[in-house]
């Protein structure tokens, strides 16, 4: 069974249709890249998969391991194993990263009928993950993302991805706002999480990120549809010729 199946998805925001029948099938172990110009609907797709309010699905389906994802609350999706790494992770003053991650992990475990993880066990786990991502301990004591640099915020997203061990990771514009060193650290973190059971959907404008996270499948989005799919060489082709050729195709 495919892990994630988006079938003929149509989505509106207020009166405007953003996605006009988008389809996508992601199998375990695969890394898919979704590329496309601004306004093509890439971020809308990621938000709808995660369950962000404000989008009206007027047609189509999203299945996760065969289950209807659109029927689930955002927190249920997370507990099932859907993870969205945000393009712009929010700052939550007054809620420490420790506290937030512990509460979130336990909420997911509780939803799955698993035992809660104790504070010492959680501490040990989060320390190990933080160390592997070069995240200093004191960052975990601060408010979630408060005063973090762009790179630190993205690393914090990957830290959460590593901690929650989701089945599908959607990475929304992970490269935005990152310099080349920060990008490499983030990409290494993502690559370390690649596994035969897990799939990733990498959303990006630029081919650059795909030098670090090498995809199995590349999709080009334009005007709310996937207009072309191919292997990793498609990304290089786009870098050469730009998106203009697809604007007409859509």
């Amino acid at each position: 069974m495919s892990l994630l199946e988006v079938k003929d998805l149509q989505v509106r925001v207020e009166e405007r249709e953003i996605l006009h029948g988008l389809s996508l099938t992601v199998n375990p172990g695969q890394v898919h890249a979704i590329m496309g110009p601004n306004g093509s609907g890439k971020s809308t797709l990621s938000h709808v998969i995660a369950g962000k309010p404000g989008y009206e699905v007027t047609g189509g389906q999203i299945l996760f391991k065969g289950e209807d994802l659109l029927e689930m609350a955002p927190n249920e999706r997370a507990a099932k194993g859907v993870f969205l790494a945000f393009q712009y992770p929010v700052e939550i003053p007054g809620v420490t990263t420790w506290n937030f991650l512990h509460a979130a992990l336990n909420a997911q475990r509780k939803a799955r009928g698993e035992d809660e993880i104790s504070s010492p066990a959680f501490l040990k786990k989060v320390r190990e993950v933080a160390k592997s991502l070069n995240i200093p301990q004191d960052m975990l004591k601060r408010g979630v993302n408060v005063g973090f640099s762009g790179g630190e915020k993205k690393r914090n997203e990957i830290l959460q991805m590593a901690l929650f061990e989701p089945a599908v990771c959607i990475l929304d514009e992970m490269d935005s706002g990152l310099d080349i060193d920060a990008l490499r650290i983030a990409a290494d973190g993502v690559n370390a999480l690649r596994s035969p059971e897990r799939a990733m959907v990498v959303i990006t404008h630029y081919q650059r990120l795909l030098n670090y996270i090498v995809p199995d499948v590349v999709h080009v989005m334009s005007k709310g549809r996937v207009v072309k799919s191919g292997g990793k060489e498609l990304a290089l082709e786009l870098e050469e010729s730009g998106y203009a050729q697809f604007e007409d195709a859509a």
């Binding site: 609350a73 955002p74 927190n75 992770p89 979130a104 959460q160 929650f164």
Partner: peptide, 13 residues
């Protein structure tokens, strides 16, 4: 936007 972020990490509303 904060509520959505937190729910996307598994916290019920």
């Amino acid at each position: 936007s904060l509520l959505f972020y937190m729910r996307a990490r598994g916290l019920p509303e």
